[in-house]
Design a protein around this nucleic acid. Structure first.
Lengths: 226, 226
DNA sequence: TAATGTGTGTAAAGATTCTGTAAATGTTTT
DNA sequence: AAAACATTTACAGAATCTTTACACACATTA
């Protein structure tokens, strides 16, 4: 649940904003002057700030500049009646992430808030999966079996990735060839796949002759443990 | 110098956009259909995309969704004649960072582009970073290894910065090429990257043949120590 | 039962690709 | 023009991939 701070000198607008935003799963703090806003911010910085340009105790542009400096990661949306292009340019130049002219459509404001938060959110793309005692870190190209690091060759790694993406599926040699060996030309009667499977088993199975992960499906191909 | 890709079916608009943006220090590629845009993107992803909603070979909303999925870090500004609130909401919901209605003021568009790029830029919170015995001062372009100053060429410095910003990630040569060598045209089979890696290793590693920082990930590329 | 064929496990040899590295060439900066 | 830098090229050794050959298990057929 994201926290938004709305700063505007008009208490009615604040009331409407708060009501509308809270309907959409935001927690909203309000301040009708900059002094109060500052104390709320220093209390605990919000995830986004809606800022009116005309406040009784400060120039919105200057405020925005200082915000950008102190809290560069918190997005600011300017919310103001000034609709001239020059105003918008100055507003955005001063560090605002968006500039919305009053009177505004609530739905548009909501969409813009969402877009801002989406962009400002830290992009976590940790790609890691665990199966049994095997752990694969796709980003690092790292595979560990019960904590021990395993060195896999490129093809072995590709093959393992392919298997883990199709767990519990019996994969024919042809299917495997068409995705892991696409681009390279191997003969249809080649045993490369089998050989690589053996190598993988040697490296990831506790007892390679009694595989727990890469199972043989006689007559069909191979299957990775669900 | 930021690279912008403008996609619009109207060639006149593209011409005007290109001219105006290039006056403001942007490098601009243009495409009048999605197919062409895609090939430009896969060649080398731009820093920002201006996207018209009505293209001859694709629905803008769907395109935006797929862009957000494939290139979440590249901001998209929608540029369209549709001015209804519902259109804006749909556009922003589909992943656009901003939505500008035609006919637009060039100055406002420029300001919004700038704001988008500012937000999307990797937030260099620190201007100094230490990893092991390596210390990098980004502002002064200064690198020291256990106190001793190291002279790096511009490309070497860029490469090192890129690595330190992606520590613990296996980076393919292609990935490196697309960000450190973007703009310049090197052949895909070129070994420039490897050569620069060697030079860097010679300068920052204690034993270049046993690197501690810039590690080789066989078959994948290189990775900087976490 | 013995013979044959098919499918899989495995080792080892040969072929290919990948990486480190030095040196040559081309380009930009001073 | 000289120096600094970027890029290409070439090659060796290592690592990896692919082929090949054979062993074994199991099923089918004579």
């Amino acid at each position: 649940m994201n926290r938004i701070l709305a700063v505007d000198d008009d208490k009615d607008i604040l009331k409407v904003l708060k009501a509308n935003l809270e309907l959409h799963e935001y927690k909203v703090d309000t301040a009708n002057n900059w002094t109060k806003a500052q104390s709320l911010i220093s209390e605990s910085p919000p995830d986004l700030i809606l800022l009116d340009l005309t406040l009784p105790d400060g120039d919105g542009i200057e405020i925005c500049r200082s915000l950008r400096k102190d809290l560069p990661q918190v997005p600011v949306i300017m919310l103001t009646a000034r609709d001239k292009v020059s105003d918008k340019v100055i507003g955005l130049e001063s560090g605002a992430d968006d500039y919305v002219v009053k009177p505004f459509e609530t739905l548009e404001l909501l969409a813009r808030i969402k877009a801002c938060l989406r962009r400002a959110a830290p992009q976590i793309t940790k790609e890691e999966i665990s199966i049994g005692s095997i752990k694969i870190d796709f980003k690092k190209h790292l595979v560990t079996v019960s904590g021990r690091k395993i060195d896999l060759t490129p093809k072995e790694f590709e093959l393992l990735c392919f298997f883990t993406n199709h767990r519990g599926e019996a994969l024919s040699r042809d299917t495997i060839r068409k995705s892991v060996w696409k681009g390279s030309q191997i003969y249809s009667w080649s045993r490369v796949i089998d050989v690589h499977i053996q190598h993988l088993r040697q490296k990831i199975e506790k007892d390679p002759s009694n595989p727990q992960y890469i199972l043989t499906v006689p007559g069909a191909g191979y299957m990775f443990k669900e």
